[in-house]
Structures are given as C-alpha cells and as structure tokens.
Simulated assay, not measured.
Amino acid sequence: MGFHTFDAAKAAKLDDPAARYRYVSAEELVWAVGATGTATLADLGSGTGFYTDDVAAHAETVYGVDVQEAMHDHYRENGVPENVELVTAEVAALPFDDGELDGAFSTMTFHEFADDDAITEIARTVAADGRVAVADWSADGAGEAGPPLAERFGLEEAQARFEAGGFEVEFGASRSETFLLVGRAP
C-alpha cells in the first residue's frame, strides 16, 4: 500500500475547487470533524491548505500538518489564515502534547500515512472523545482520479485500523471513488 507523498511540483492542481469539492465538500468536512469556534484541530496532510481554510473558518486554531515543507511554501503563497499554524511533521511523529487537539481530519492523504504508528499518534494527540474525520480515495473506486488502486484502502480496512487503535467509529460511507470515516478518539 501507498505511503508516498503527492508531488509538491504539482501542488497547484490541488487548488481546483471543482475537482476537490467533487469528492469532499467543505460542509461535509466541517460536520465530520465537529468543528466549533473554540476547537483546536489538525489537518493531517494539509498540502496547499485547500481544506484547511474551509475548516479554519469554523475553528479557533487549525494546525496544517504536512511532511513536505514545499507544500507549506505553496500554502504561504496563497495566504494562510491567522488562526492556522503550519507544522512540518510526519503523522507518526506529531509535535503535540497528549490530548492537545480537540480533533483532526485528513482529506485524500490517509493512504500516504496509514499505519499503526500514525493511528497511535493520532489517538495520543486527540483528546478523549475528540472527533477524527478521514476522507480518502477508496480501493473500491474505479481509479479514474487519485492514486492507483493498489495504493488505496477501502472503508472496511480503514475502519478496522482505527478500531484497532482504540477509536469508536461513528460513521462510515463508501462513495464512487472515496470513503468518509468519522471516529471518536479513545
């Protein structure tokens, strides 16, 4: 399975609203992560900040976490909201205290970091009962967009991984090319 990163040289492709909202809407993501005006959230694999900006409008603080500093550079060129802090880190090694986050979300990047260490780290940094939302390319899709099918996970496998990490999965839906999973941190 995957564990690659998106080519930062193609970052501008990630800023196309018609292409991005076709698979995950801003409203859906804000609902899924349970964003409130006082929440401290992390966007895991924030890339160019496309979805980070959507959620930031409904939260007190959002950490845009990406392993590639080049993605942060692209985000800075577009303009970063005042309540967003950019963090260069792997999901398996987040620089947050235990329970520091009220929630976390990931859009189209779970396949890039989906392993036990990353899920353990998400569980460590998200406060008990905090929401974690994951929208990603599905292994059950046709593969017409996104990464190759061999690099994707299905909803059931993603759910099993989060449940093994102690999360209670509250919602899961498979769509034509993607899935959405919402869980509560242990």
Rank of each mutant, 00 (worst) to 15 (best):
G103T: 02
F113W: 15
T120S: 11
E121A: 12
A164H: 06
D115H: 12
T125W: 13
G130L: 00
E100Q: 15
D117W: 12
E151L: 07
A164C: 07
E112W: 14
A145N: 11
A118N: 09
P147A: 02
L155K: 03
P147G: 04
D140I: 09
E112H: 08
W137K: 00
D129Y: 13
G166R: 00
A135F: 13
E112Y: 13
D129S: 12
A133Q: 07
L155Q: 08
A123E: 14
D140M: 04
G130D: 02
I119M: 08
H111A: 05
A135L: 09
A128H: 14
D136Y: 04
G141Y: 12
G146P: 09
A118Y: 13
F105C: 02
G103K: 00
T107H: 08
A127D: 13
G146W: 01
T120I: 13
A150V: 10
P148K: 02
F105A: 00
A104E: 02
A142T: 14
R124D: 14
E163S: 07
A139R: 02
T125Q: 10
T125V: 15
G130I: 01
V132R: 02
Q159R: 11
T120V: 13
M108R: 05
A127R: 06
F113L: 08
D102T: 12
F153Y: 04
S138L: 03
A142K: 05
G143Q: 03
L149G: 05
F110D: 00
A135C: 14
G154E: 03
R124H: 15
S138Y: 03
A145T: 13
A123F: 14
A164I: 05
R124T: 12
L155A: 05
S106K: 02
A118Q: 12
L155N: 06
E156H: 05
D140L: 08
V132N: 01
W137E: 04
